[in-house]
């Protein structure tokens, strides 16, 4: 009983801390949902994503970034970073030119040297595009209504099926436990600064279902116990 109380206190503290962090600093949004800068680089011969990742990493250091192939021809990439200055962009472009165009020119026998320099990307041709952040509200909006509908239905089912356990207790537990579990998970995500995005949302859905499964097991075991006791008494 004592341990249970300690656990409850810890859960409450984590939730309170999570709410404070969320209200003050917000979630650490996944790059796909946060405010970001994007540039695109193309060549004619094809691009190796790992090479681009390496060169971007050298320039941007600890700044979060992703490199994604654009279209299906394998010769264009989109570099998306939390932040990117003009100097950093120019540096990436220079490295890109070094990697893909100096090698090309050496291979292209001795045609005209102008031809290879023509192909090089000019710093001014690459523009940094600012992409606005997605609001947390917009990210979670599609999940709220289905969550409420299913929770109401499950609560109704539990209240009827496990009425012998006391419908008030079942009703309260079914409503509170999944909500507390979700709040706890998102509080931990907020406190630990784990990126909030696609994976966090999916884990939220998984946690919801697992909570319902655990509750079903728990109530079912309690119901069987009561039925067995009743049988024994009879």
């Amino acid at each position: 009983m004592k341990l249970k109380n300690i656990i409850y206190i810890i859960i409450c503290l984590i939730i309170v801390a999570g709410i404070v962090v969320w209200k003050t600093a917000g979630f650490n949004m996944e790059l796909q949902y946060s405010s970001r800068k994007q540039i695109e680089l193309t060549n004619k011969t094809g691009i190796e994503i790992s090479d681009i990742k390496k060169m971007v990493s050298e320039v941007l250091g600890n700044t979060r970034f992703i490199v994604q192939p654009v279209e299906t021809f394998g010769n264009a990439v989109s570099i998306v970073a939390e932040d990117m200055t003009e100097e950093q962009k120019n540096s990436i472009v220079e490295k890109f030119n070094e990697k893909y165009y100096s090698e090309d020119s050496s291979e292209e026998d001795k045609e005209s040297s102008d031809k290879s320099s023509d192909k090089k990307i000019d710093n001014d041709d690459i523009k940094i595009v600012s992409i606005p952040f997605t609001r947390v509200k917009d990210v979670i909006k599609p999940y709220i209504l289905p969550g409420i509908i299913t929770l109401v239905l499950v609560t109704m089912y539990f209240t009827i099926r496990f009425r012998r356990l006391g419908y008030k207790k079942i009703f309260a537990k079914t409503l509170i436990v999944p909500v507390v579990a979700e709040t706890l998970m998102f509080s931990i995500i907020a406190i630990t600064r784990i990126p909030f995005g696609r994976i966090a949302i999916t884990l939220g859905i998984a946690l919801y279902l697992m909570t319902i499964f655990v509750l079903t097991n728990k109530f079912e075991n309690e119901r069987i116990k009561i039925l067995e006791e009743l049988e024994n008494n009879n």
């Binding site: 289905p146 509908i149 299913t150 079903t216």
Partner: peptide
Amino acid sequence: MNLLPIYAISIIF
């Protein structure tokens, strides 16, 4: 029976 509630939720999803 233990799987029934999450089965129902899955169908709704």
